[in-house]
């Protein structure tokens, strides 16, 4: 269960289930980066913002079905993964579009970013999401642990191994 200020996830969920919209907005602020990171590992970047909104709207509509308020983190992540799976058919075309957009931008950094993103997307799921949270969403290891339910140790291991794989695949050598 994540605590932010005085309010835990469970308290916010219970309040939102009673119709307290600001409570759900707090949950959105807390979990939008997580959902964004999950989706970015599976969908084209251009689609992700829209799908993040769809995921949270779905979550708000179905919030009464969440019987264990403390399980919100796992629940919203599951909705995001399922939603990404539903969109899988069009993903490859859109991802290719990420490359074309980056090349057209004619900026070396943009091309490198697109390469790095593609490399992260190709990693095993546990490394992929952890790296997305860390490198794209800018979350610390402790924040990742709090918002995913993983232990800090697991997060650090995933980060370490994920970074090593990423370096290998991008041909980055230790100088």
């Amino acid at each position: 269960m994540v605590e932010s200020g005085l309010q835990t996830d469970a308290a916010l969920v219970r309040a939102a289930q009673r119709g307290d919209v600001p409570a759900f907005e707090s949950l959105y602020t807390r979990y939008a980066p997580v959902v964004h990171g999950v989706l970015l590992g599976r969908l084209a970047a251009s689609d992700v913002d829209d799908v993040v909104q769809e995921v949270f709207i779905t979550a708000y509509q179905k919030l009464q079905m969440l019987r264990e308020p403390a399980a919100f983190a796992g629940w919203i992540t599951r909705i995001a993964r399922n939603r990404a799976e539903d969109s899988r058919r069009s993903v490859l075309e859109r991802m290719d579009l990420d490359w074309k957009t980056a090349r057209r931008a004619n900026q070396e950094d943009a091309v490198d970013a697109a390469r790095a993103l593609a490399a992260i997307r190709a990693l095993p799921c546990s490394y992929r999401e952890t790296l997305m949270f860390r490198l794209v969403e800018g979350m610390s290891a402790d924040e990742i642990a709090q918002r995913t339910g993983l232990t800090s140790g697991s997060v650090r291991v995933n980060l370490h191994r994920g970074m090593r794989l990423l370096r290998e695949r991008l041909g980055v050598t230790d100088d």
């Binding site: 943009a110 992260i120 794209v136």
Partner: peptide, 14 residues
């Protein structure tokens, strides 16, 4: 490098 992909979706009107 990857910060450009950081999400900033507009919060829906719940």
């Amino acid at each position: 490098l990857l910060a450009r992909y950081r999400g900033a979706p507009q919060m829906p009107d719940f």
